[in-house]
Design a binder for these strands. Structure first.
Length: 230
DNA sequence: GCGACAG
DNA sequence: ATCTTGTCGC
C-alpha cells in the first residue's frame, strides 16, 4: 500500500494549530438536524499507531444504517506528523483519515469519530474538524470524559446527562449504551443535532458499549497496521 | 506554578 | 494510543 503524503505545511507548531481551530470553527454548521437514525449510511473512522516506525494506519468502514451491514471498507497508511497533544488530536489523526475516506467509492453518509466534536476546550474537536474539511455530517463518540464534568446518568441503557461547558452550554452528553456499563461521551461534529447524534449512538450500540462503527473501524486499522509488518 | 487532559 | 495473561461471567 502506498504511503499517503503529509499535507503541505505539516507539521504545524501548537500555537498555529490552535489558531487553525479557532479559524475553522466558524465554518461548523450546527443548525441542521442531520440524517435521522437508522436511515442512509453510517461510516466509522479510526486510527492505530506504530510508534516504532512512526506510522499511522486509518480505516473507514461504511455501514448500512438500517441493517448495520458492511457496504465498503478502506484503509490508508501515513507517517505520524503531529504528536499527541490533548486538545489537538485532530492534527494527528485527520490526514490519515482523509486518506482512507478518499479511497472509498461509496458515499460515507454520517461519519462517526472516536473522540469529541463540540465537547472540546475550544469547541472544535476531531469530529468538528473532519466535518468542516469534508462538509459531511459528523459526530464524536468518546470513551472517556475530557474537560467537562458531569453527573452520573441513571444505570439503564438510554439514560443520559448533559456535558456542560463552564458557560452552561450543553456541549455533549454522557450516554449509557448498556445497562450498568460506563457511559460513552457523545457530541456533535458538523451538520447534525445532539438528539440525532445520541439516537444514532444508541442504534449503533445495541449489543456493546461502543458503536458498531467504532468497533469495526478499530479492528480494521489495527489489522492494516499489523499487515505492514508481515 | 501544578495537575488534568479525546486518542 | 500502547505495553500485556489469565480470568470471571453471560
Amino acid at each position: 500500500m502506498k504511503i499517503i503524503e503529509v499535507p503541505p505545511g505539516w507539521p504545524l507548531d501548537e500555537s498555529t494549530a490552535r489558531a487553525v481551530q479557532d479559524e475553522l470553527r466558524a465554518r461548523v454548521v450546527l443548525d441542521e438536524p442531520g440524517p435521522p437514525p437508522g436511515t442512509g449510511r453510517v461510516t466509522g473512522v479510526d486510527v492505530a499507531y506504530d510508534d516504532e516506525r512512526g506510522l499511522v494506519a486509518a480505516a473507514a468502514v461504511v455501514l448500512d444504517a438500517q441493517t448495520l451491514t458492511v457496504i465498503e471498507e478502506a484503509t490508508a497508511v501515513g507517517r505520524v506528523a503531529f504528536p499527541y497533544v490533548p486538545g489537538l488530536l485532530a492534527f494527528r489523526e485527520v490526514p490519515a483519515v482523509l486518506g482512507a475516506l478518499a479511497s472509498l467509492t461509496e458515499a460515507p453518509g454520517l461519519i462517526v469519530c472516536d473522540g469529541y466534536g463540540r465537547a472540546h476546550p475550544r469547541r472544535f474537536g476531531l469530529a468538528s474538524h473532519l466535518g468542516v474539511l469534508t462538509d459531511l455530517p459528523t459526530m464524536g463518540v468518546a470513551k472517556n470524559p475530557f474537560v467537562f464534568s458531569h453527573a452520573d446518568p441513571d444505570p439503564d441503557r438510554g439514560a443520559s446527562v448533559p456535558l456542560r461547558a463552564p458557560d452552561g452550554e450543553e456541549v455533549g452528553r454522557a450516554l449509557r449504551t448498556q445497562d450498568q456499563v460506563k457511559p460513552v461521551y457523545v457530541s456533535v461534529g458538523h451538520r447534525i443535532s445532539l438528539d440525532h447524534a445520541c439516537a444514532h449512538t444508541l442504534h449503533l450500540a445495541s449489543r456493546y458499549r461502543l458503536p458498531e462503527t467504532t468497533r469495526r473501524a478499530d479492528r480494521l486499522c489495527r489489522d492494516a497496521l499489523a499487515d505492514l509488518t508481515r
